[in-house]
């Protein structure tokens, strides 16, 4: 909190702003010294010094795209900040935090990632709507409410999941005793007979960390790019054995299984 009864607000200037740290729970300060950062479009709120913001497609930055960006299809949603000075980042008054990766990997919901150092490589995750960061460096992510770190094995609510690090096995889990059969389907569909709304979770096992936010409000999803239409690519729509009409609607994370199949249609 910046104001206290009796005392004036804390006034920041470039010498008192923290370097690569939080100003308060909702604002993050990044220092640039001739270096570069990747930002999601429109997340800069103010800066001291001289900086340039350029779209990823900028010719001079082509090299960066090659080393740090491996999904050219969504590169247009990111900008490169370069120059010297201190810059404040924020996103709709959500909580922001920075995370350090050391030769690690972390997968995060695309809407939650705000900014990252070019030493990290950003790739599309196999899980639709998620992005994976690989390498060594710092990134800044937003969440609705503070982030909680959990150790697997754990089952989490789809809306509360922010991301996971090093866990190899995110999968869906359904409470089958409650969900199967026509009555289960009806319950899930209509809420009649008492759907708890928690019949479906994501399950994580193995060594790693799972990041959860303390609310179930999702951030607006950023386009994470499309995948090539090839057999065997999840979300690619080219896999054999899918019935007609199924390829048209992509399955969102958190969406229940197909009800038609549940009803045996």
């Amino acid at each position: 909190m910046t104001t206290h009864p009796g005392a004036g607000p804390v006034v920041h200037d470039p010498t008192t702003l923290p370097v690569d740290d939080n100003v308060n729970a909702y604002t993050f300060c990044v220092e640039l010294r001739g270096s570069e950062w990747f930002l999601q479009k429109g997340k800069m709120i103010a800066y001291y010094g001289s900086m340039d913001f350029n779209g990823i497609g900028h010719g001079r930055l082509d090299r960066l795209v090659r080393t740090s960006f491996h999904s050219p299809l969504h590169a247009s949603d990111w900008v490169v900040a370069s120059g010297t000075g201190r810059m404040l980042l924020a996103d709709r008054a959500f909580d922001v935090n920075s995370y350090d990766l050391d030769k690690g990997n972390l997968t995060i919901r695309s809407g939650n990632l705000l900014a990252f150092q070019p030493t990290l490589a950003l790739k599309q995750s196999i899980v639709p709507g998620f992005l994976t960061l690989i390498g060594t460096g710092t990134f800044v992510a937003a969440s609705n409410g503070p982030v909680v770190f959990m150790e697997p094995p754990i089952r989490v609510d789809p809306q509360a999941l922010v991301g996971w690090a090093d866990c190899p096995s995110p999968c869906h889990h359904y409470d089958h005793g409650y969900m199967t059969g026509v009555m289960g389907g009806l319950r899930a569909l209509t809420g009649l007979g008492g759907a708890s709304g928690e019949e479906h979770q994501f399950e994580f096992v193995g060594a790693g960390t799972v990041l959860l936010q303390s609310s179930e409000a999702l951030m607006a999803e950023q386009p994470a790019g499309t995948v090539p239409h090839q057999p065997g690519v999840p979300g690619g729509g080219g896999a054999p054995g899918h019935g007609p009409g199924q390829g048209g609607t992509p399955r969102l994370p958190g969406q229940l299984g197909d009800l038609q199949r549940r009803f045996g249609l």
């Binding site: 910046t2 607000p9 006034v11 200037d13 308060n24 008054a93």
Partner: peptide
Amino acid sequence: GPAVVLRVSGQYPLT
């Protein structure tokens, strides 16, 4: 969200 108060001086213009 809580406002961040930033000082502007001749030495440090703000954008």
